[in-house]
Computed example of a mutant assay.
Amino acid sequence: MDETDAQPHPHEPHAEGLATKLNWLRAGVLGANDGIVSTAGLVIGVAAATTDTANILTAGIAGLTAGAISMAAGEYVSVSTQRDSEKALLAKEKRELAEEPDYELAELAQIYEAKGLSKETARQVAEELTAHDAFLAHAEAELGLNPKELTNPWQAAISSAVSFTLGALLPLLAIVLLPVSARIPVTFVAVLVALAITGSVSARLGGSNPRRAVLRVVLGGALAMAVTYGIGQLADISGL
């Protein structure tokens, strides 16, 4: 046998794990994008109403903290619900394997037969996988789950909070470190550039069109900052 034939395909064994990592990375980029937009809108709105750096910084830190906690809590609840559903499905599958092993074996064989294997080969594959690890074989084939790699709500929550915070730091630092005359326009431009980068990265990770993704996220961010700037200007004029 040719030596190259004996080597596994570089993408097949780890395709699922790679896809999971890419999804987490994309979620992190989107979290950073949320931090950029929400914090930029907040600090630019406050900066339009006052030049007091302490007030702007206080508002920015409050927005960053609230946003990070909100993102973490939302992600924790969402992933916890998903994990509970996955555990319930796995428990049901384990119970069915214990109560109806012959039926489950036939079901597993049918799954592989539906994927293109001959009836005999599908049966043989099902028997060998069942002999090795019946629960894992059924969980992966029927449910698309690996019992050892269930989603982790704490990991999701921490990842969301960190990515949001990192994104939020850009407009917050820009608005408080720059001179008063330059803080709003420079922050506006810096935020749009950062959004273009995050939009492009997110699109490439998701396999979509980068140009469209960048356009959407940049226009959305620009609109958010323009609206909050206008509200800040109105608040300043009215003396609120």
Rank of each mutant, 00 (worst) to 15 (best):
P185D: 00
R216N: 02
L42W: 06
D2L: 05
T4P: 00
L173E: 07
L205N: 00
A109V: 02
A27Q: 15
Y112W: 10
V214D: 03
T51V: 02
Q233H: 13
S181F: 06
H132E: 14
R212N: 03
A98Y: 02
A156K: 04
G221A: 10
E96Y: 03
A157V: 03
A15N: 01
S80A: 12
E149G: 06
A40M: 11
A98C: 02
A62V: 06
G41A: 07
T121K: 07
E104T: 04
A190H: 10
N33P: 09
I61L: 13
G67I: 00
E16Q: 15
R204M: 15
A88K: 12
K94D: 13
D133T: 06
L170F: 04
E100H: 14
E140H: 11
A131I: 05
E140I: 12
V193Y: 03
V46H: 04
Q7L: 13
A235Y: 07
I61A: 04
T20F: 11
A98Q: 09
V186M: 09
V191R: 08
V79Y: 02
I69L: 09
D52E: 07
I197P: 07
T39G: 00
V180S: 07
V43T: 03
G17L: 12
A174M: 15
R83M: 05
A134S: 15
L22W: 08
A27I: 09
T50W: 00
R83Q: 10
S70A: 12
V37R: 10
L192H: 02
F135M: 13
A226S: 15
A15W: 08
T58L: 14
I175W: 06
L136V: 07
E113R: 08
Q82G: 13
A122W: 05
A122T: 08
I111W: 10
L145A: 00
D133R: 05
K148N: 15
R216K: 06
L192K: 02
I184E: 10
R123E: 12
G116H: 13
P8M: 04
V201K: 07
S200F: 10
T187P: 02
P147R: 01
L215R: 02
A182H: 11
L166R: 03
S70I: 04
A196M: 00
L105Y: 05
K87E: 15
P10M: 06
A15Q: 13
